[in-house]
Amino acid sequence: MNAMQKNTITQSQKLMIFVLTMSLYGLATLFTELIPKFQVGLVEFSIEYFLFIPLTLGMLFDPLSAALGAATGELVFSEIMLGQFGGLGELEKFLTVTIGVYIAGRLVKDPKNRVMVGIAAITGTAAQLLMGTIVDIAKVQFAVEDFEAVAGLPESVFATEGFAFLNDLLFSGIFFCLLPTLYLVPKLYGKIEPLLGMAPRTAQSAVAGLNPKSVVLCLIGFLCAVTAEMAATAGMSLIDWEAEWAESGTAMAMGMVAAAAVAVIAILVIKKNAERKVA
């Protein structure tokens, strides 16, 4: 009975993990937004990924709560607080970070096994980066009109994105994800869990191991991220159709302008009247 209780996580402990990951990763991503990147030749040295924070916490605690917390933290602290919320693109980032951290967290069975921790850390990072790269290429392809027609543009997109992926994985991935995770996981293991009122994770814990169900879940999540970008293509054809309609519709546009102008004037008049009544 006692052992059973230790292995399951209560709802409020999940919330604790969520809050913990959110505030830490949010703080870190805020710094990365503010620190300027610098380039030496073609290699870009950016302290882009403090991904080691959610990776570490995802390996020590419940992976799903940690993953969701990290993605939310990034969204709230660095995008919404700094006013850099980018609409569709954020959905893609949210999902890829969640999936990357979740995969890494599920891969680790026993946090004391250093080899497994290392493999999981680099796998999670690579998964996140790869998904980001695929979506980025798709985004530029759909946003630019006559993508193939512009000389040199297709090759340059593939080259820059592919290069950025390798660069991020080999530089940020190793220095900012793999090494700190290898340093922090064994050091925090057994120390941080009691602070949240939990037993340390062991090989027997309920959350360990990557099963087919979670792989399918990750795939669905990635498909959602791609669909968000595919919506752009669908939207393109929709607008083309609308543009044809608009060509013959100068009168229609005139009507819209007139209607909007009437609305502005009407609201102004109503507002004046309402103010007079109050006064």
Partner: peptide, 26 residues
């Protein structure tokens, strides 16, 4: 850079304590 990485170790422990307090208050 190493110092920044290492300072996340005490920060994680402190934040863990704080988030437990927050959640319990909630």
């Amino acid at each position: 850079v190493k110092i920044i990485m290492e300072s996340f170790y005490p920060l994680m422990l402190n934040t863990a304590k704080r988030s437990r307090t927050t959640v319990e208050a909630l």
